[in-house]
Design a protein around this nucleic acid. Sequence first.
DNA 1: GTGCAAAAAATTGTATACAATTTAGCGCCT
DNA 2: AGGCGCTAAATTGTATACAATTTTTTGCAC
Lengths: 237, 237
Amino acid sequence: MDSSADGLLTPSDSSETGAQQIRDAIRDAIVERRLAPGTKLSESDVGGLFNVSRTLARAALQALSYEGLVSVEKNRGAFVAYPSPEEARQIFAARRLVEPGILKSAAERINPVQLEQLKQLLVEEGRLVGERGQSARRAEIKASGDFHLMLASISGNLIMQRFMEELVARSSLVIALYGQSSASSCGHSEHADIIAALERKDVDAACGLMLHHIAHIEADLDLREHRGFGLKEAFER
Amino acid sequence: MDSSADGLLTPSDSSETGAQQIRDAIRDAIVERRLAPGTKLSESDVGGLFNVSRTLARAALQALSYEGLVSVEKNRGAFVAYPSPEEARQIFAARRLVEPGILKSAAERINPVQLEQLKQLLVEEGRLVGERGQSARRAEIKASGDFHLMLASISGNLIMQRFMEELVARSSLVIALYGQSSASSCGHSEHADIIAALERKDVDAACGLMLHHIAHIEADLDLREHRGFGLKEAFER
DNA sequence: GTGCAAAAAATTGTATACAATTTAGCGCCT
DNA sequence: AGGCGCTAAATTGTATACAATTTTTTGCAC
């Protein structure tokens, strides 16, 4: 099993092949938290790692910066994004703003096959919650996001789908930084509730549950300013 | 007077200076419809035009492709995006989904100064509607978009603001392709109505007016498939 | 040992060079 | 005249080379 659930329906970007693969690989590493926020991503290192020139490495990094997963600072290089608390709040505000609408749209268009796929995703997610180990944890993170992404896919709007991809990926970073309960799966049953509401065509309830779900994730965050002390502050008292 | 209203609050991208400027220049050209959809943007030409190497030209084009304003096809080059009718529908669906939420958020946070700026934007827009000539038309297009962008800026959410920038820019392309009444200003008074509702704190009314406004713009579109015949079809009857 | 300054090393910014692919032109055949 | 295949030109994909900037190291004074 590899990156798996990209089988949703990738926009088929059509641009250069090389940089694309690198971008995707790095993105996966960031989203699955194998790369910690703030990590330096030097062009030479990235290029060397994938056996390509700096040109492609740079293009990949550049692409990731447009998605907000990497921040490139002029003349200093690229780093895995380190979203500020304020940025974190805005990411979740955006999700609250957008996801009910996506859900509503998805509810109008969903067909039995898609509903089945959604449920399938859910049991997969449930299975991973049970399993133990780093690898399962990573897969669980991905699966949890894939639920939201699948809804966006069902909504049939590619633009919103891409936007959600960005938001979900960035959410992963935020949770990595500010999440408290290590179990990111706290919302697994909530996914089930949303599907149930969807199945009985109760759109309003589904939207309410979605908002509740997002709020729940956000409630697990500790968004006080500079929680990681700056080394000086850490020893000042 | 130059590109003017970038004074809103540009996210200050921080990446490379060179490519940025080129990207912005080309984006302006696309949004103001000096570059028609489908126009080929060869890397050499772009580079030559701005006196930089292909490297920077390519980076700029790449950046624009992430915004959906340029479509780059592998081994074939970059073209000013030519959104399909379906894509056009999705762009406006996204706006319907997102703009009421942004407006609501803006209404909660707006202060008198911002309200004044918004009104200022409106009179500026009104002035341009009256003027005649290509240059005024372009400025009017920009001003019309700036209204929506300013609301996003007031909402205080940088992520939604950037998303709206993308949507507004792409809308301009859609209107260029499928718009019927040449006057894109048909919705000028509607902007005023929205501000009026905003001023009397009637959020629901404002949202309703916004939806009406977007629907109004969309209603001016002729989204039948391949309205521009393919040269063969054009002479077949 | 600490602090500062200059030099060296490393890294990014940009241009150029070469390889791969597509597009256009040309001749030839039917 | 019209279509087919080949060659040449143009264009993109990728790597490398050089310039500019930042970071680290080194050396010296205190």
